[in-house]
Structure formats: C-alpha cells, structure tokens
Design a binder for these strands. Structure first.
Lengths: 188, 188
DNA sequence: TTCTCTCTATACTCATCGGTATAGAGAAAG
DNA sequence: CTTTCTCTATACCGATGAGTATAGAGAGAA
C-alpha cells in the first residue's frame, strides 16, 4: 500500500507543476520508483490516478463546506467561516488546491476538467443551498443563488490565487476584507 | 495567406475547446484542410501557432487597456471603462478570451502558461501603473498596486467567466455592480 | 507442501507526438 | 524559356503516448 501512496504523491507533484495533459504515465512511475503495471494495478488508468487524488484528498474540503453551509441565520459569520475554511485547506494542501484550480479553469472538453467538475459542482451546489437558506433572512438574495455562489467561489479563488503566488499573506485582516468585498455585491 | 488565417482560426477553436496540451499539430492541420509542412512554414512550431494567436488577436485588448489606464483623475470612471473594455473584448472574442483565461490559470511550468504569461504581465503592469497614478488622489492605494491590480483582474475574470458560462448577462447594471464590488475592496 | 491471491517487473502493443527531408506546383521576374 | 521564390504535399524520423500480456515473487491458508 506504500507504493499506492507514493504514486499519488508524485502524480500530484507533477500534475500541479506542469498540468495533467503534459504529464505521462511513464514519468509518474519513474518518480515513484515503480513500473507501469503497478500504477495500472492500483488505479486502472491515468484518469483513475487523478480521480483518486480528487476523491481522497479534496473530499475533506467538501465535507467541511457541507458543515459550514448548513446554517444561515448569521450570514456574515457563515461567509467568514467559509472563507476561513478555504484558506485553511489551501494552506494545508497547496499543491492540490493549485492543481484543482488550474483544472477548474481548464476547458469543458478537457479530460481533467471533467474529473474536477464533479467536485466543483458539489461545492457550487452546497453554496447555492446556503444562499437559498439565507434568502429567508435577506430577501434580495432570492433567485440569485447561482450567481452568488459562483461569485463567492470566484472571490475566494482570486484571493487564494494571490496567496499561492505570494502576493498576499493569509492574515485575518485579508480574510475580513475578502468577506466584506464579496458581501458588498450581495447587499447592494 | 488564406491558409495561415484558417490555421489560426482552427487552432483557436481546438485550443479553446480542449486545451493546448490536448491538441496535436496533426489535428489542427486536418481541421484546416492542409498538411503539416504548411503549418510549419507559417509558424515554425506548435508553440509558434499559439504565439501568433496571442500576439495578433490579444494585442487589441492590451492596446485599449494601455489607453484606458493613462489617466487616473477619475478613478471610478476609469474602473468602469476598464471593466467595459474587458467585457466588450470578451464578447467580441469569446473563444480567444476563454482560451487565454484557461492558460492564465494553468501551471507555471506549462508551456501554454509561459506564452500567455507575457500578455498577462503586460496587463498586470498597465493596471499597476494605473493604481500608482491613482494613489496621488487616494492615499490608501499607495504601495498596494500589485494586490489591487491582481484583485481587479480577478474580479473581472470572475464576472467574465460567469458570462462565458451563461450564468449572467453583460448588462450595464452587472458591470456597475462589478465595479462597485471591486471598489469596496479599495476604499475600505 | 501446495494452492491461491496480491502485487510488481520485463517486454511488448499500436497510435500519436512534434518535427522534417525532399520534391513538386505555380506564379513572378528576367 | 529559364530561373527563382513561395507555398504545399508525400512520406518519413525517433520519441513518447496510454495501456497490456505474461510471468514471477512473496505471503497466507489448506
């Protein structure tokens, strides 16, 4: 089972550096110090490697998000918690987050996009249901869940992208500012 | 010269749909109805095709941006003009903008990223110099040009991404909202 | 011991990758 | 009527793409 973990780790390293399409199976197994049949034994295909990576290591983020979006009585507090959750996750798994971000912005017909799209849709759905719940407290949210969820993710990813590239620090003040900036779009 | 234009058009079509890495030279020439030496005659390499695409079709955006960022006496008006300019360009060249966006978010060691990075750096630089100029009117901008330029591009791209996916229309009201949302981050 | 099951390596498949050597077609210039 | 230059096709290059057939090594169970 050690080879399996090593393969996943090396694949993440390579995918996050040069992209899914640019990496060959041969390259992954060489970095992991094994041979191709070992990879195909555990994952079945190159696609299977990426799916395992997403399913196993991105799942905690989605679980936490599901938790943070169940209550919407205090919208600003929930928004702050959601931002914090994403920042914490990106700090714990910077390579994974960078890879997922690149794939999320890749094209619809691209294989990597289709794999990440499942996890992305889950996040979008959780946020939409959050805004639906919030709309019972804030009338002007009603009917705009989809746009709000998307702009929220967009704002979060803009800030995390800045942090990943070293342009900003992940201070409480920055998170507060990001929440405020997003909130302005809601209550206007 | 017709074959050259057809090659560029088909390459854009394919790159924007499945990504630079996922598309082979063979596929491009087949869609264009020519053979490989024709492509290599005009562009020298696969990379050359993408460079021609960026240099020739993305340049108008950068020229317009250079124009819109020269004056910073009226910051809100300039910001609105910049947003409008990006929206107009994305509407005129949706495929190109989608492709550029995907490559911008792809990984640093990826070939496509490195090609687009030049154009991206130009935009970033123009926006930074705009904020430097604006700082003589708004003191709290000083020293934060880099972050502001990056979050401005992030906000713009979030909204254009939403428009490209059909989630929002490009109405004057939406543009106004985007400007307001971004501005909140500045003056806070 | 022997049988089975999980895991991994050697060595291979065929398709596609980016790129090119060579040559011919056609137009313009002399 | 030949020379020259631009453009394009046929046919190829070695390298690499994803994926696999076969077999052996080692552990656990009988």
């Amino acid at each position: 089972m050690d080879n399996r973990a090593t393969l996943l780790e090396q694949a993440l390293q390579l995918f996050a550096q040069r992209g899914y399409d640019a990496i060959g199976v041969q390259e992954i197994v060489e970095h992991a110090g094994v041979t191709k049949p070992t990879l195909y034994h555990y994952f079945g295909s190159k696609r299977g490697v990426l799916e395992a990576l997403i399913n196993e290591r991105l799942q905690p983020l989605i679980d936490q998000l599901a938790n943070a979006t169940t209550h919407a009585n205090d919208v600003p507090a929930s928004l702050a918690a959601i931002f914090q959750l994403y920042f914490d996750f990106a700090q714990a798994e910077p390579l994974l987050y960078r890879m997922q971000l690149a794939m999320w912005f890749s094209l619809p017909d691209n294989e990597a996009f289709q794999i990440v799209a499942v996890a992305a849709a889950q996040q979008q759905a959780l946020l939409e249901s959050f805004f639906v719940r919030a709309s019972s407290f804030h009338g002007n949210i009603r009917g705009r869940q989809r746009v709000y969820a998307a702009t929220l993710l967009g704002t979060i990813n803009t800030y995390i992208g800045l942090w990943l590239s070293g342009a900003i620090q992940a201070t409480p003040h920055i998170i507060h500012q990001a929440v405020q900036q997003f909130s302005y779009g809601i209550y206007s």
